[in-house]
């Protein structure tokens, strides 16, 4: 039964460490991408693909963690660069490109995961990734905090960060002011998507450590990371908080079955209901003004407009 004590909470925090790292990396990367004005609807696809790639590397390269993190990050970065380039150079719909990449990435993930899944079946004692010790989990939290501070400094205190913000607020004005919007967005997308890729790899290596349709491609966790970023106002430090809350929630939702005697399926739906609630709260309260989204997020950027 449910025992609401500090010990339980502490256990929960430690246990969900791996998930926190994954969510935070994804949400942070997503925030950086969107700050430059690119609406990223491909996040769930990126998650599915990168987690699968990490699995692939784990199986074929015997849990070489360096490769397992590097390859997904690079692949994600390439997709990000593609998105940033086409969305800035051509008057293309961000949503349409994002969604199509999402489907494409789901498809790629299914096909890429098939091979290693079969291979893994023939390796009885193999599990992808590593089991983190308690110290490693705590270190993980601290590393994420440091990453958040670093990202905050980059975005708010440097000229590069201002260029990225400017591209997200008003790319046409930014160009007139001398910003190379394309370069800023490419950099933001490279950094952001690489982080999302690292997040997918972290999910596979530190948390779920198995590959199947349900846990990876149909999990929808990329969308949860989207909600984490949005309700945190895409602010590197506030997102630490929202990622923390969500990772605890998602991890414990499996426990709810035992604690509150609800059905397993119902517990799967809870994170999504909370995510919807979080997005609604953000949009319906002053939060939306205090931690405002970039004004030109998702807007098609087209320089040669006719004047009236």
């Amino acid at each position: 039964m449910f025992d609401p004590s500090i010990a339980t909470l502490a256990d929960l925090i430690i246990a969900s460490g791996g998930l926190f790292i994954a969510f935070y990396l994804m949400a942070l990367g997503h925030s950086v991408v969107e700050k430059s004005g690119i609406l990223n609807l491909a996040i769930d696809g990126t998650f599915a693909l990168t987690a699968t790639l990490a699995f692939f590397m784990d199986v074929y390269y015997n849990n070489n963690l360096l490769l397992s993190f590097l390859v997904p990050a690079v692949v994600a970065m390439l997709f990000g660069l593609f998105m940033a380039f086409t969305l800035t150079k051509f008057p293309v719909s961000h949503g349409a490109v994002g969604l199509s990449l999402m489907f494409l990435m789901y498809g790629l993930a299914s096909i890429i995961g098939y091979g290693p899944r079969i291979v893994q079946a023939s390796l009885p004692n193999f599990s992808p990734g590593i089991a983190l010790t308690v110290e490693e989990r705590v270190a993980g939290y601290l590393v994420m905090l440091a990453l958040g501070l670093l990202t905050y400094w980059l975005i708010e205190k440097t000229k590069l960060g201002v260029s990225i913000k400017a591209s997200g607020e008003d790319p046409a004005a930014a160009e007139s002011l001398g910003v190379n919007v394309l370069a800023s967005r490419l950099i933001a997308a490279a950094i952001g998507f690489a982080m999302i890729g690292l997040g997918g790899a972290a999910y596979m290596n530190f948390y779920v450590r198995l590959w199947d349709e349900r846990s990876i491609i149909l999990s929808g966790y990329g969308w949860l990371a989207f909600a984490v970023a949005l309700s945190g106002g895409r602010h590197p430090l506030v997102v630490l908080l929202t990622a923390f809350v969500f990772s605890i929630l998602v991890h414990s939702s499996l426990q709810f079955v035992a604690w509150f005697n609800i059905s397993r399926e119902l517990s799967y739906s809870l994170p999504f209901i909370v995510a919807i609630a979080a997005m609604t709260i953000y949009m319906a309260t002053p939060l939306r003004r205090i931690l405002a989204p970039p004004r030109s997020l998702g807007r098609i950027y087209f320089r040669e407009e006719r004047t009236v």
Binding site: F103, L104, Y106, G107, I111, I217
Partner: peptide
């Protein structure tokens, strides 16, 4: 399903 998604996505 993956193959179908590749078609849809592309």
């Amino acid at each position: 399903a993956g193959v179908t998604n590749v078609f849809i996505g592309s």
